[in-house]
Amino acid sequence: MSEVRNPTAASALSEPRWVRLSLILIGLAYLSLVVLLPLAAIFTEALRKGVGALHEVFADEATYSAIMLTLTVAAITVPLNLVFGVAAAWAIAKFEFPGKSLLITFIDLPFSVSPVVSGLIFVLLFGAQGLFGPWLAANDIKIIFALPGIVLATTFVTLPFIARELIPLMQEQGTAEEEAAMTLGASGLRAFLTVTLPNIRWALLYGVLLCNARAMGEFGAVAVVSGHIRGQTNTMPLHVEILYNEYNFVGAFAVAALLALLALVTLGAKSLLEWRYGDALAGKSRH
């Protein structure tokens, strides 16, 4: 608690000690109940039958393939959205054109769509009774209940993450540095690589982290398009569901704990970035 020497000055700009203490206690209690307790529960439940039981879970073929599928989906989705994010931010931040704010709204759209609806729209397009369903079936192409569908749904859900980290930052940075590089003889690509990219690297990393965490953890949208085919179209979050519904609680919580660790690492890296490079992440809290 902040030391304030002059008690009267303190009371003018700060609350009485008992108010401060009770507010802190209320906040702590609420956060513990809502956030920390569930987090603790995941690890407790996972370790309920000891470390040996964990070994069994991760030795299971189905668990292994779920992990691989999740990694594959993230490995496709994140780079795609990375390229999109950089391209969209470049066009939006460095140029003026009509309809720009509408474009930004569209980029944010997936944030306001329910995950289940996000999956549903691809079923309506590519599902058996979907728009292209008959054609796909005739040509023996599988999108729904297969990897392409999972990738599409995940790409939809995670599309805004990188773009929305970059757009405000690049808007704030303006065009002067790139122009300076070009008056000094650098080509446009060279200016982008040597000037723009270093300026946005931390925001880029930040966006990639968030995008990756969501891509690996997405449940609702993927649940709709995956078909839950064990060993084939089961991502880690879906595998958690299956194990849980089979009353294999240790298994479910073990896989959940792995995902929770990913979330914690993401949060840690995010806090580290904010603390260390707060200035390089425009629009983020401190200035």
Partner: peptide, 8 residues
């Protein structure tokens, strides 16, 4: 440049 545009 007016605000120098040094590469930070």
């Amino acid at each position: 440049f007016q605000h120098y545009a040094l590469f930070r």
